[in-house]
Amino acid sequence: MSTQIAEEQQTDEPGTGQPADAEAEAEREENEYAVPEWATESEDGPGENEDTVRLEVFRYDPEVEAKQEPRFDTFHIPLEQGMTVLDALIYARDQYDTSLTFRHSCRQAICGSDALFINGSQRLGCQTQVQDLETPVRIEPLPHQEVEKDLVVDMSHFYEQMDAVDPYFRSEDVEEGEEQRQTRENREKIKMSTRCIWCGACQSSCNIAAGDNEYLGPAAINMAYRFVMDDREEETIKQDRLEIIEQEHGVWRCQTQFSCTEVCPKDIPLTEHIQELKREAVKKNLKFW
């Protein structure tokens, strides 16, 4: 158990998720609603120097007639040491345009709310350092999901796929209150797969999930892996789980493009897990021949 706690506390970028310090907070109060013209409009205003970064943010709002046509808005954000894309977005929203909409919560890469399409790849806003990116930083909502507003996408299909693999521990003959012990080796085996934060970056990056809506997708298959490989569940339950993932739109659709593995903010070896489940499924079927 202690391993698990240690892992969950660990973040890849210590300190980046910290809320802005008090000084900045006070400054912000002063500037509230005073949007300098150069900050949102001009291309070559005072924003173009070393201390600011230009954000190009996808905007769309179906409820306001003038905003129904998708467009990109430009914001010039004062650059700070250690500033993440999420920090920059928060600055833009608080200082320039309060209608700018995006999901965020914990700011430390564990809640999975702020997966965005940043400079052409799926990343967590809170885990991506602005200074590491090419400018202007182009921020779009996750591809292959419908946009609700600005950077907010409809995640319901992703959650449906996750639910399809029964993402919870099942056991048939465990007495009430009995402790479920797991070997260290087995814990190690499923370690990476437990790290999923349901951000949907992998699903969004997957070319097959984009084309085939029924495909379970990398996150759901990884979730299945997490339980299939868990020794504490009985063999019969494992077989049930394999039957879900070995359907036509299960593991077989994976084309090992490695897109999911490359974008996963928690470094889960998704392709490896999918491949292992393919082999498990083949082995299971070979037994009946």
């Binding site: 769309y60 179906p62 998708p70 591809p143 419908e146 946009v147 609700e148």
Partner: peptide
Amino acid sequence: QSYDRGLVED
């Protein structure tokens, strides 16, 4: 209402 960008980004 939601906005489907389709395959544009591909």
